[in-house]
């Protein structure tokens, strides 16, 4: 009986004290930055003539990922799966532009909900994605 009571006590504790860690609210922004950078890499691989135009934009996204990872306190996942993607799925400038616009919306929502200390970073990322959409016009 003592043993089962102890177990029951354990059970109560197991349910309560250590909830699964919530992902950091900036994590979706980090994932999206890496996905956007990878999309640019695929587009450049498929159309090397676009490299001059697209490379600086991909670099902006990598800079976002680095800064977000620093603030979250995590490592930037290495080796985005860009190289392995088939060329037929390569994004065009038009689909990149749509992805930037969607990404801007994500970043606006993150900025809106962010604590003061993170609002400026999320805001700059939102603004940057908007400038990318403009640069792709």
């Amino acid at each position: 009986m003592v043993g089962s009571a102890a177990l029951a006590g354990c059970g109560v504790f197991d349910r309560e004290p250590e909830p699964a860690p919530q992902p950091d609210p900036l994590q979706p922004l980090l994932d999206e930055s890496l996905a956007l950078a990878a999309a640019y890499d695929r587009a450049i691989a498929a159309q090397p003539g676009l490299a001059t135009r697209l490379t600086p934009l991909a670099e902006d996204h990598r800079a976002h990922a680095t800064e977000l990872a620093r603030v979250i306190g995590t490592a930037v996942p290495s080796a985005a799966p860009s190289a392995s993607a088939p060329a037929s799925t390569a994004d065009t400038v038009a689909t990149l532009r749509k992805a930037e616009q969607a990404g801007q919306k994500t970043a606006v929502a993150v900025c809106q909900a962010a604590p003061a200390a993170r609002a400026a970073l999320a805001g700059s990322i939102a603004a940057c994605r908007a400038t990318h959409a403009e640069a792709l016009r």
Partner: peptide, 26 residues
């Protein structure tokens, strides 16, 4: 902030200044 960043990008394009964007506007 976003509007001004986008305007700056437009002016850079008109002026043919590169890069057109910066990673952390503002």
């Amino acid at each position: 902030l976003t509007d001004s960043a986008v305007r700056a990008t437009r002016w850079r394009r008109i002026a043919e200044v590169t890069p057109l964007t910066m990673a952390f506007p503002g």
